[in-house]
Amino acid sequence: MSDMNSEAKQSSMEVFFNGLVKENPTFVLALGMCPTLAVTTSAINGLGMGLTTTAVLVLSNAIISLLRHIIPNRVRIPAFIVIVASFVTMVELLLEGFIPSLYSALGLYIPLIVVNCIILGRAESFASKNPVIPSIFDGLGMGLGFTVALTAIGAVRELLGAGEIFGVPVFNKVLGGISSLLGRSEPIEYVPISIFVLAPGAFFVLAALTALQNRVKRKMQEKGQNVDKIQSGCSSDCANCSDSGCARRFVDVDGAPGSVADAKKS
């Protein structure tokens, strides 16, 4: 709880950058894996999904924070779900009306924002305990952190899988420049590794990114830095989840030590 109090005293900017960098929901907390893998076939889809989630997150954080003294503790989860689902429905209708191309690209994953761990997790662990302004900044920071991560993953997959970023054929332009420098009449063409825009590519890119993150964490540990603080997420291991927003839902089925019970102590 002392941690919570110090969090409440943070300035809005600190809360904002905490979500964007230090506790990035995708790379550090590993929350919301389903949309992360499903919609990142291109950078623009990742960006769209990220911004949609940000909008829902900011609005739901604001409303939940406003109602935090009114909602009875016992029914808070259903109440949060109704609030989030209302905003998701609104955003879905707005997208369908004004950006139909994004609506059809994201499809099923827009309504599924309701069950995104990030939103309920932030509602439970931040918005329900903090005033409105910090909650809005928390939503903005977390949402933009999610957006940056999705856009980055989307860009990697699009670059390898189609040779483009945001629809710009980067590889072919560079290769075209090189071949004209070399004086070749036929420009060299990039052959896209199309598996990266298909389903398996999503798993591989995320595996590589998580391995990279593990490596950084290990190096930091070797240097004697305390990394416990940034391991606060569910690290996509739901059975051993320690996030207060998730611990309620996930029991430790494998009976492994050092999971929910231990996490609650700390």
């Binding site: 590993a30 598996i195 298909l198 389903a199 398996p200 590519g201 999503a202 798993f203 591989f204 995320l206 595996a207 590589a208 998580t210 391995a211 990279l212 593990n214 490596r215 290990r218 690290s235 996509s236 291991d237």
Partner: peptide, 23 residues
């Protein structure tokens, strides 16, 4: 398994290979 790939990364790679098989 290489140190950095222990845990989630290797599971994700396994899942990716399974996804290829299911293709």
């Amino acid at each position: 398994i290489p140190e950095s790939f222990k845990g989630m990364p290797i599971v994700l790679i396994t899942a990716g290979l399974m996804a290829i098989a299911f293709c």
